[in-house]
């Protein structure tokens, strides 16, 4: 039965994707891509990928919409309509259809969905599933693979996120000269939702709970879906909500920019540092077994630390990006 639900939701996904591409209003496209992300998360969940669904939820529901909207506020809301209108363009269409057709043709060679004998399930995955209880001793295999077995990969990903944050800062400017403090203050008040009493009261009430949930996701990631990536995105969402409600200036007062810059750097440093400490203690890079007397406890400690590093960097980068866009808007 789950298969039928999946087929239905995937069909909706295609419909939404077509609608996104067809709409000339970019705001409508952003709203539809919000639905796209929700559908994606539900599909991930039905395909037994709870961690991925949680990541999509954390990123897609809060941060992505906010980023696209602030980019729209800085650019234009409509696509320019040209003579010829919204007509399909033939050459790209042919290229796209050729690629799509080729891929569909290729799928007939694929093993069917859920086939336990598919080549994907033969190579390393069984080893991870068998050895996680013994070597790492945590229930969530995804976290075990992410943090320990493939920790090197994750370190790379964290540095990609770090680099993207640095990139946004260097493109949109680290500092900008304030025109006048008073007008900036008025500006922020006009932009914030400060005079909307109901959203403000409710939203301010929500912020601590979102942060609490982020902490739960962060530190319970070994036992349930979650981990640093999700927790970082959720925590960033909480602060973004606060900034939307109270104005960007107060959001920056809550988490100042120097703190964000320290967060962005220190999270990545913590991750790499744990690896170096492992080397100093006689293990190999990111081999947490040497961190404690019992190897599995060392793994627990190492996972805790690197997940913390991931969470700090991700939330730092997402908030930095948000502030960079918001500040651009207010000048």
């Amino acid at each position: 039965m789950t298969l039928v639900f999946g087929v239905f939701l995937l069909t909706l996904l295609v419909i939404v994707a077509v609608a996104i591409v067809r709409s000339t209003n970019l705001f409508a496209a952003v709203m539809l891509s919000g639905i796209f992300s929700l559908l994606m998360a539900v599909n991930f969940f039905l395909l037994d990928a709870a961690d991925v669904a949680l990541t999509e939820a954390a990123v897609g529901a809060g941060v992505a919409t906010v980023l696209f909207l602030s980019a729209l506020a800085l650019t234009a809301e409509h696509e320019q309509v040209r003579p010829g209108g919204a007509a399909l363009q033939w050459l790209p269409l042919v290229v796209a259809f050729a690629t799509g057709g080729l891929l569909i043709y290729a799928t007939f060679q694929n093993p069917v969905i859920g086939d336990p004998n598919a080549p994907v399930h033969q190579h390393v995955a069984p080893w991870y599933l068998e050895n996680t209880p013994e070597l790492i001793d945590i229930p969530n295999v995804v976290t075990a693979v992410l943090g320990s077995f493939r920790g090197f990969d994750t370190l790379g990903e964290v540095f990609v996120v770090f680099t993207a944050g640095i990139g946004v800062l260097s493109i949109l400017g680290l500092r900008h000269t304030l025109v006048e403090m008073t007008s900036a203050e008025i500006d922020a008040r006009q932009r914030s939702l400060r005079h909307h009493l109901i959203p403000r009261v409710v939203g301010r009430g929500m912020v601590p709970f979102i942060l609490l949930f982020a902490l739960y996701v962060q530190f319970h990631g070994e036992y349930s879906p979650g981990g640093g990536f999700q927790a970082g995105a959720i925590a960033a969402a909480a602060i973004i909500l606060y900034s939307l409600l109270e104005g960007d200036d107060r959001g920056r007062a809550l988490v100042p920019e120097w703190l964000l810059q320290i967060m962005v750097a220190s999270g990545a440093l913590l991750f790499g540092g744990v690896g170096v400490v492992c080397m100093l203690l006689g293990g190999s890079f990111l081999d947490y077994s040497v961190l404690a007397e019992v190897p599995s406890e060392g793994q627990h400690l190492g996972l805790l630390l690197i997940e913390l590093g991931v969470g700090i960097t991700v939330s730092g980068v997402l908030l930095t990006v948000f502030h960079a866009f918001a500040r651009r808007a207010s000048r």
Partner: peptide
């Protein structure tokens, strides 16, 4: 609880 609080707020907003 969270949805009972936020859903009407979103409608209001």
């Amino acid at each position: 609880v969270f949805l009972l609080v936020t859903s009407p707020t979103a409608a209001y907003a």
